[in-house]
Protein backbone atom coordinates (compact mmCIF):
# COMPACT_ATOMS: atom_id res chain seq x y z
CA UNK A 1 0.00 0.00 0.00
CA UNK A 2 1.36 3.38 -1.00
CA UNK A 3 0.55 6.61 0.76
CA UNK A 4 -0.41 8.80 -2.18
CA UNK A 5 0.28 11.99 -0.25
CA UNK A 6 3.93 11.17 0.40
CA UNK A 7 4.74 8.42 -2.08
CA UNK A 8 5.89 6.19 0.78
CA UNK A 9 5.35 2.45 0.34
CA UNK A 10 4.30 1.02 3.71
CA UNK A 11 5.15 -2.50 2.54
CA UNK A 12 8.77 -1.57 3.13
CA UNK A 13 8.11 -1.71 6.86
CA UNK A 14 8.74 -5.27 7.99
CA UNK A 15 5.86 -6.39 10.23
CA UNK A 16 8.01 -9.00 11.94
CA UNK A 17 10.33 -6.30 13.25
CA UNK A 18 7.76 -3.53 13.58
CA UNK A 19 6.54 -4.25 17.09
CA UNK A 20 7.84 -2.56 20.23
CA UNK A 21 9.44 -5.63 21.79
CA UNK A 22 10.75 -7.17 18.56
CA UNK A 23 12.12 -3.82 17.43
CA UNK A 24 13.91 -3.49 20.78
CA UNK A 25 15.32 -7.03 20.50
CA UNK A 26 16.63 -6.41 16.98
CA UNK A 27 18.09 -3.05 17.98
CA UNK A 28 19.91 -4.50 20.98
CA UNK A 29 21.24 -7.48 19.03
CA UNK A 30 22.36 -5.23 16.18
CA UNK A 31 24.77 -3.60 18.63
CA UNK A 32 25.66 -6.55 20.84
CA UNK A 33 25.90 -9.26 18.14
CA UNK A 34 24.68 -11.78 20.73
CA UNK A 35 23.14 -11.69 24.18
CA UNK A 36 21.71 -14.09 26.68
CA UNK A 37 18.01 -14.11 27.49
CA UNK A 38 18.31 -12.41 30.87
CA UNK A 39 20.53 -9.65 29.52
CA UNK A 40 18.03 -9.05 26.72
CA UNK A 41 15.13 -9.00 29.17
CA UNK A 42 16.92 -6.42 31.32
CA UNK A 43 17.16 -4.06 28.33
CA UNK A 44 13.94 -4.84 26.50
CA UNK A 45 11.63 -5.36 29.44
CA UNK A 46 8.52 -7.53 29.64
CA UNK A 47 7.90 -10.91 31.16
CA UNK A 48 9.75 -14.12 30.30
CA UNK A 49 6.72 -15.51 28.46
CA UNK A 50 6.07 -12.35 26.49
CA UNK A 51 9.69 -12.01 25.43
CA UNK A 52 9.88 -15.71 24.54
CA UNK A 53 6.85 -15.32 22.24
CA UNK A 54 8.43 -12.42 20.40
CA UNK A 55 11.75 -14.23 20.14
CA UNK A 56 9.98 -17.22 18.61
CA UNK A 57 8.47 -14.96 15.93
CA UNK A 58 11.89 -13.56 15.10
CA UNK A 59 13.38 -17.05 15.07
CA UNK A 60 10.63 -18.34 12.76
CA UNK A 61 11.34 -15.47 10.39
CA UNK A 62 15.00 -16.50 10.41
CA UNK A 63 16.09 -13.19 11.90
CA UNK A 64 17.71 -14.58 15.02
CA UNK A 65 19.48 -17.82 15.93
CA UNK A 66 18.75 -19.34 19.31
CA UNK A 67 21.36 -21.44 21.07
CA UNK A 68 20.53 -23.31 24.26
CA UNK A 69 23.41 -24.48 26.39
CA UNK A 70 24.44 -25.20 29.96
CA UNK A 71 26.94 -23.16 31.95
CA UNK A 72 27.79 -25.51 34.76
CA UNK A 73 24.34 -26.76 35.71
CA UNK A 74 22.50 -23.61 34.71
CA UNK A 75 20.67 -23.51 31.37
CA UNK A 76 21.44 -20.49 29.25
CA UNK A 77 19.78 -19.20 26.07
CA UNK A 78 21.96 -17.19 23.72
CA UNK A 79 20.32 -15.11 20.98
CA UNK A 80 22.21 -14.00 17.89
CA UNK A 81 21.13 -11.88 14.98
CA UNK A 82 21.37 -14.02 11.83
CA UNK A 83 22.72 -12.71 8.49
CA UNK A 84 19.12 -12.66 7.20
CA UNK A 85 18.11 -10.74 10.32
CA UNK A 86 20.84 -8.18 9.74
CA UNK A 87 19.68 -7.68 6.17
CA UNK A 88 16.07 -7.31 7.32
CA UNK A 89 17.17 -4.90 10.05
CA UNK A 90 19.05 -2.71 7.59
CA UNK A 91 16.08 -2.74 5.20
CA UNK A 92 13.79 -1.83 8.10
CA UNK A 93 15.97 1.10 9.10
CA UNK A 94 16.11 2.28 5.50
CA UNK A 95 12.30 2.17 5.39
CA UNK A 96 12.06 4.30 8.50
CA UNK A 97 14.66 6.72 7.18
CA UNK A 98 12.75 7.02 3.92
CA UNK A 99 9.60 7.76 5.85
CA UNK A 100 11.40 10.49 7.75
CA UNK A 101 13.18 11.90 4.71
CA UNK A 102 10.18 12.19 2.37
CA UNK A 103 8.81 15.69 2.19
CA UNK A 104 5.11 16.21 2.96
CA UNK A 105 2.93 16.53 -0.15
CA UNK A 106 3.00 20.12 -1.38
CA UNK A 107 5.44 21.02 1.38
CA UNK A 108 8.69 22.81 0.55
Amino acid sequence: MTDEASGFDYRRIDDVIHGRVRLAVMAYLSGAMAADFNELKAHVGGTDGNLATHLRKLEEAGYIDVEKRFVGRKPQTILRMSPAGREAWIAYLKGLETMLALKPAGGE
Binding site: L23, A24, A27, Y28, S30, G31, H43, L93, L96
Partner: peptide
Protein backbone atom coordinates in the same frame (compact mmCIF):
# COMPACT_ATOMS: atom_id res chain seq x y z
CA UNK B 1 11.40 4.29 17.00
CA UNK B 2 14.73 5.20 15.44
CA UNK B 3 15.83 7.07 18.55
CA UNK B 4 14.91 4.15 20.81
CA UNK B 5 16.59 1.68 18.43
CA UNK B 6 19.79 3.74 18.43
CA UNK B 7 19.86 3.90 22.23
CA UNK B 8 19.39 0.13 22.51
CA UNK B 9 21.97 -0.64 19.81
CA UNK B 10 24.48 1.54 21.66
CA UNK B 11 23.67 -0.20 24.95
CA UNK B 12 24.32 -3.55 23.25
CA UNK B 13 27.54 -2.33 21.70
Amino acid sequence: DLKAARTLAEAGR
